[in-house]
Design a binder for these strands. Structure first.
Lengths: 210, 210
DNA sequence: CTTCGTTTAAAACAGGTGTTTAAATACACC
DNA sequence: GGTGTATTTAAACACCTGTTTTAAACGAAG
């Protein structure tokens, strides 16, 4: 079963696991090919370069997540009942849908994004905006509808703060969970998202302007 | 004037600049020694290893920031008027005080912390807690006083969310500012902290529990 | 001036990186 | 079944990494 998968698929699965655990630069092609039980050169054969592999790994998740998010946003917009919390909730379903590309897919995707933002500065952002800029802008438009009294600049920064909160927590999640587990009970990932992260982020975004 | 400084000082100044710009792993000792106009081997002579250099760079800032923060916290505790916003404001002055170790010191320090949390997982946290755990615990105690109705677990997570927000924004700040500058006016760093980040973070921390 | 511990200097070390090459194999199609 | 393309393989490539070595230069004390 494990040996049955085609080479490029085995590379992708090994790569997304290691990338999400240690980041892109800290993961070598030799680690990836070793875990995938595949020859080193096959990475460059199938994906051209390490950068190409990184993009391929990310794109697999984006192509599932972004359309699903887009659908949720359109659904919400039709209800005419747009609040910050409701917009944020639109992200939950599409994240959970990533389980279909792999077990733990939501967590992996967020970590890939997190490392992407701190390591390959700008590249990931441009890559995302080029391919899914319309979805991002749609979300932004809904946020302005939910907070019509905010200056565009305020909302711009707060949404990036929110992104930062989510990505940072995900990237340093292992270390955090080790500390938390010492004092508190083990958190269910999905509940963690809706019960812990979402209230914090929603309150931050909707905080009154000075 | 530039050539006058002693070797180890020149290494530290070059290292903290490059580390804060590109992260620890992405910065090589050869880049550092080249910028410092110093021989490569002198890093290992003065600091033992690259890890030793990283710790030395960080410690220089911690030794200024942490005592200043501790003083602010004690001052606040004496007032008997403890709110989330006031605790967060305690961080502003000590951050600004880092300008005395170097111009732009506050920004450098936060970036050093940010990269530390995503790269050298856990090490930085243990290092900080070992040396300044009392200050951290003091801050945590004040936050529980300001939010007495919260479960300890809730506050634990929200404070880490807040840390994540600040560090992520700082680390990806260059890219963010480039986007922001295209649409908005240039933000003053100190005002950015107090007028933009602090309201978001304070509202997130104090958000009502579900 | 000489001596001795500290500091700098150039070079080499051992190991790891992404990538490329060229030959061997697998596989589909006529 | 043989042919030709697609894929896999092992090896080498060129470069970069942190660290160590050995010798030279420095600077203060006797």
């Amino acid at each position: 079963m494990s040996k049955a998968a085609k080479t490029s698929e085995r590379i992708l699965r090994a790569a997304e696991k290691l990338f999400s655990e240690k980041g892109y630069e800290a993961t070598s092609l030799r680690e990836i090919t070793q875990l995938a039980e595949v020859n080193l050169a096959s990475v460059n054969y199938h994906f051209g370069s390490k950068k190409g592999l990184i993009q391929a790994v990310l794109e697999r998740y984006q192509r599932v997540f972004m359309p699903a998010l887009s659908a949720e946003l359109k659904l919400l917009e039709a209800t005419q009942n747009i609040t910050t919390e409701r917009i944020l909730t639109c992200f939950i379903g599409p994240l959970a849908a990533l389980e279909e590309v792999r077990q733990g897919g939501a967590e992996i995707y967020l970590k890939l994004l997190g490392y992407g933002y701190s390591e390959i500065q700008g590249h990931l952002r441009k890559f995302t905006m080029n391919r899914f800029g319309d979805v991002v802008q749609h979300a932004f438009r809904l946020f302005t509808l939910a907070n019509p009294h905010f200056a565009a600049e305020t909302l711009f920064w707060r949404l990036h703060f929110a992104l930062g909160t989510v990505l940072f927590v995900q990237v340093s999640g292992k270390a955090l969970n080790e500390i938390a587990r010492a004092d508190f009970s083990d958190p269910n990932p999905e509940l963690f998202m809706t019960q812990r992260l979402l209230p914090y982020v929603a309150a931050g975004i909707s905080a009154p302007e000075l």
